[in-house]
Amino acid sequence: MDVQGQQMTEPKTAPGLFKRNPPIAGEAEAIERAKAGDAEAFSKLYALHKRRVYTLCLRMLGNVSEAEDMTQEAFLHLFRKIGSFRGESAFSTWLHRLTVNLVLMHLRKKGLQLVSLEETINPSEEDSPKRDFGSRDTQLAGSVDRVALERAVASLPPGYRMVFVLHDVEGFEHNEIAVMLECSTGNSKSQLHKARLKLRELLRQAESTPQDNLKEAAL
């Protein structure tokens, strides 16, 4: 019996974040110099991490000017707090957690109540993915490129997108996400599942109209 999924059994442990975020050459020295207030080291750390921090902000916020503001905030915060980085996690993990928390704080200030995730950023019923009890379809596997996925993620409802980005892209665990979003782990799990179902729906839609997309892109 060849049950699908056997090939993907890599256990997901917390230290996995180290694996996913391996140290970058020159980073450790830059961190030490930045701790001593070396301006060039700040510049080096910014250069090393700006793309990932900005991309994270952009995915969480969905707009360029807010994402740039929060990138700025995140690095200023980083430079202020770098003395407290002890190297217990990968630097990029630490930086990303700091960024996520700043973005969430910003969203809360704007009045987006992340506390009751279920109520406020859970999309309405008609937005939620269809249950898939019966329909037979071709499989997605192997057919989705990065651009299509990025586009589908961008069009997820904000609550789904948040959990998907934090868990599946950034690699945070449900218990960490629950703390960040001030929700239950159960809530985080179910949001993630709904997010993936919705993505599947979006990706299938995109697949079923590839010609139109190509035309649009060409114009």
Partner: peptide, 29 residues
Amino acid sequence: SALVRDLQYIADQARQLLQPTHEPSDDVW
């Protein structure tokens, strides 16, 4: 089984997105 396969595939593909695609403008720095 197609559903499970697709969901695994999506979760797997998501990791690709960790590689950043966007760059902030020079103004930020």
